[in-house]
C-alpha cells in the first residue's frame, strides 16, 4: 500500500518549459522516503504539486489511497509539511505561531507544548520568530508540520540552515517519529550523504525525470554492481582475449580492461597469467563506487 502515489505526473511552467515528466512516485506506508536530486531537478515542484500548491496539469496524485483533487481537505488534515524556507509570522512568538495553526487543525492546546518540546524550542518565551536564528526557524517550522499529528510528513530540504548537531538531531527525530508513531516521512534533499543514514526508500530525480526508485538496499546493491576492477596493459585486445578464454566477464572501457570486483587471490592469478603471456601490466585498480557516486552517476547520465 502506498501512502503517496503519483502516476505520470507531468508539469510545464509558462513558456512550455518542462518541469516534470511522467513522474511515478511511490512512497510506501510507514517508510522514510528520501527524494533526491540536484538543485532544480524538480523535487520542490513535485512536492508542491502533491500538496496542491501548484495546479496539477497532467497525471494522478493519490494520498492515503484517495485522489488528492477530490479529497483535498480530508487528506491535508493528516499531512504535515515544510516546503523550502520556513513559513512563520515574524511578529509572533513560537507559541503564537503554533496557535495560528492550532486554530485551524483544532488539535488540543497542549499539543503546542508537545511539539515545541520535540524540536527543543519550549524556552523561547516572548522572543519573536523574526529574532530566531535560521536553525530555530527551521525547527519551529517542523513543529508546525508536526502539530496536527500527521500520518504523512512532507519535508523539503528540512536540514537547510541547521548546524551538524541540528542535522543529527533532526535525523533522530524523524526516525523516532517513524518508528514510534508510524509516520510516513517524505524528505527531499540534494545530498545523499545527508539522508542515507535515515531513509528506507530512495527516489532520485533529475531534470524532471525519476531516474531511480526503490529501497535503500536496492541502491546499495546497484552500488556493488557498479564497483569495478581495472587493468591497464600494453596490449588490451590480447589481454581481453586471454581473460575471456578463462571465462572472466571482461570488457574494455576507456582504454582499460574492466572486470567485476574479484577476490585478491583471483586478481593475483589474472595478473600472473597476463604476465606469463608476455603482457605488461601497468596498473590494477579497484574502483568502489559509494552511494554518492551512484547518485552523481545517475544524475549525470
Amino acid at each position: 500500500m502506498y501512502c503517496l502515489y503519483t502516476n505520470n505526473l507531468t508539469h510545464r511552467f509558462s513558456g512550455n518549459e518542462m518541469a516534470l515528466s511522467k513522474v511515478n512516485l511511490q512512497v510506501p506506508d510507514g517508510s522514510i522516503y528520501g527524494f533526491l536530486g540536484p538543485n532544480g531537478a524538480g523535487k520542490t515542484t513535485t512536492l508542491r504539486l502533491v500538496l496542491g500548491l501548484l495546479q496539477k496539469q497532467e497525471g494522478i496524485i493519490e494520498i492515503f489511497g484517495k485522489s488528492f483533487q477530490r479529497n483535498r481537505i480530508e487528506i491535508l488534515k493528516k499531512v504535515g509539511s515544510l516546503i523550502e524556507t520556513p513559513s512563520l509570522y515574524g511578529q509572533l512568538t513560537a507559541v503564537e505561531n503554533l496557535t495560528v495553526w492550532q486554530s485551524i487543525y483544532q488539535c488540543p492546546k497542549q499539543r503546542i507544548n508537545e511539539v515545541l518540546g520535540l524540536v527543543d524550542l519550549n524556552n523561547t518565551g516572548k522572543k519573536k520568530a523574526s529574532q530566531f536564528s535560521l536553525g530555530m526557524k527551521q525547527r519551529l517550522s517542523i513543529a508546525v508540520a508536526l502539530l496536527n499529528s500527521p500520518s504523512l510528513l512532507i519535508l523539503d530540504e528540512p536540514t537547510n540552515g541547521l548546524d551538524p548537531n541540528g542535522i543529527i538531531e533532526m535525523r533522530g527525530l524523524l526516525r523516532k517519529l517513524n518508528e514510534e508513531q508510524g509516520i510516513t516521512v517524505l524528505v527531499s534533499s540534494h545530498l545523499l550523504s545527508e539522508i542515507e543514514k535515515l531513509v528506507t526508500h530512495v527516489g532520485i530525480i533529475n531534470k524532471g525525470k525519476l531516474l531511480f526508485q526503490g529501497t535503500l538496499n536496492e541502491l546499495v546493491s546497484k552500488q556493488q554492481q557498479s564497483s569495478a576492477l581495472f587493468f591497464d596493459t600494453n596490449e588490451n585486445n590480447r589481454a581481453l582475449q586471454i581473460l575471456n578464454d578463462h571465462n572472466f566477464p571482461a570488457h574494455t572501457a576507456k582504454d582499460k580492461i574492466v572486470l567485476p570486483v574479484l577476490s585478491r587471490q583471483t586478481i593475483a592469478r589474472i595478473n600472473q597469467q597476463l604476465v606469463e603471456n608476455g603482457i605488461e601490466v601497468y596498473e590494477i585498480t579497484v574502483v568502489k563506487n559509494d552511494l554518492e557516486s551512484i547518485f552523481v552517476d545517475l544524475v549525470n547520465h
Binding site: R48, L51, G52, L53, R72, I73, E74, I75, L76, K77, V79, S81, I83, E84, T85, P86, S87, L88, Y89, W101, I104, Y105, V144
Partner: peptide, 10 residues
C-alpha cells in the same frame, strides 16, 4: 512567506 503553509492546511 506563509502562503504555502496556509494553502497546505485543510
Amino acid at each position: 512567506n506563509t502562503w504555502k503553509q496556509v494553502h497546505a492546511t485543510p
